[in-house]
């Protein structure tokens, strides 16, 4: 699979951008947290596309955001 570039994403429509990024992001999130990968990926997709692209290229940033999203998700579930 070719790396997703900023220009590829910029050429896509807004709703396509998130889908393109999501397809790349999901396998990475799955490796970190397989059980909640669907929810965490959905949360991360609410982040700006430009920041998501940086996360795709930076495992450390991605890992940090996944942990952050996980904490928010758990807090949200605790309130339910």
């Amino acid at each position: 699979q070719e790396p997703l570039t900023a220009s590829m994403v910029a050429a896509a429509l807004p709703h396509e951008q998130k889908q393109m990024i999501g397809e790349r992001l999901y396998p990475l999130v799955y490796e970190i947290h397989s059980q909640l990968a669907n929810k965490i990926t959905g949360m991360l997709l609410e982040i700006d596309s430009s920041e998501l692209l940086l996360m795709l290229e930076s495992p450390e940033s991605l890992h940090a955001k996944v942990e952050e999203a996980l904490a928010v998700l758990q807090a949200h579930q605790a309130m339910e």
């Binding site: 807004p14 998130k18 999501g22 929810k39 990926t41 959905g42 949200h76 339910e80």
Partner: peptide
């Protein structure tokens, strides 16, 4: 009420249009 489920966040499933996209492009 019964049968309530967590609707947030919109889950992403590979190959399936992401539900959260409804908020971006209605």
């Amino acid at each position: 009420s019964n049968g309530s489920s967590i609707s947030w966040p919109p889950e992403f499933h590979p190959g399936v249009p992401w539900k959260g996209l409804q908020n971006i492009d209605p």
